[in-house]
Amino acid sequence: MNLQLQTLHWALIGIWGLLAVASVIVYAISRRSRKNMSELVERTRSWWVMVAIFTVSFLVSNTLSIIVFALISFLALKEYFSMIPTRRADRRVLFWAYLAIPVQYFWVYDSYYGMFAVFIPVYMFLFLPFASLLTQQTEGFLKAVGTLNWGLMLCVFSISHAAFLLILPPTAENSAGGPGLLLFLIFLTQFNDVAQYTWGKLLGRHKIVPGVSPNKTWEGFLGGVATTFVLALLTAPLVTPFDMAHAALAGLLIPIAGFIGDVTVSALKRDLGVKDTGSLIPGHGGILDRIDSLTYTAPLFFHFTRYFYY
């Protein structure tokens, strides 16, 4: 028990140290550069707030962390519903969709994996169209049901997998247990975002998906994958039960899935003609802009871990 706490504490201290170093670099760049760097400074400041919230909830208890993830899902779903076209008649249906959040996270809290895995893709999937048809308005029915379900899957179902990692028990190979796995997932997903962005800014030349996201480049993508891969190999022995082969696999899975999640939300934004999903996080945009990668990495990494180790 003592050892577990210590490993996790060291991992958290490492994250704070990294953030401090990054902040000093950003400060130095913004002092020297003639260009307006206020967005980068704002973004760094927001990272401090996000890391602080995460650290506090992480240290206090699993239950608080689960509640924080439920709140993240709520904010993300609210952002999604606020930016997509919705029907006035479906107000009640949207309300039911919001109610799915506390229920889904209750299954996490309750460690009820069977229900956790099917509640949204089966029960909510079947219930929402029924609730929608009660409005007796068939015009736009397909679009409404399709968009509501996708939002629920992306913002609630996907993200809840990160929370489910928390309640995985410690094993012989991994004294840090679920919290260690969650830290590994969140740290690498977010670090990969920054790494892909940074490599892209430094070396980016060849566009990778210009039709969806004109700022994404092959150099950024590959640089991010390589950096995250190395970091995964270095940190996996600390906080996960993975052997080297599995650490390497996870080190590829997270940056690649993260990239796909990022461009998926980009495609959504482009379709809707918006630049950011919201304005909740200064310098970053909305909460969906921040967790876009996580919507892909969380369920994939969870099932990867579950398949090989639980």
């Binding site: 609210k78 519903f81 107000r91 309300f95």
Partner: peptide, 18 residues
């Protein structure tokens, strides 16, 4: 904008929107 979506006239059900 949005407040009428969250709680329009004639409704008592508040649905969250930004």
């Amino acid at each position: 904008h949005g407040l009428g979506k969250a709680l329009p006239r004639g409704s008592f059900l508040l649905v969250p929107f930004f």
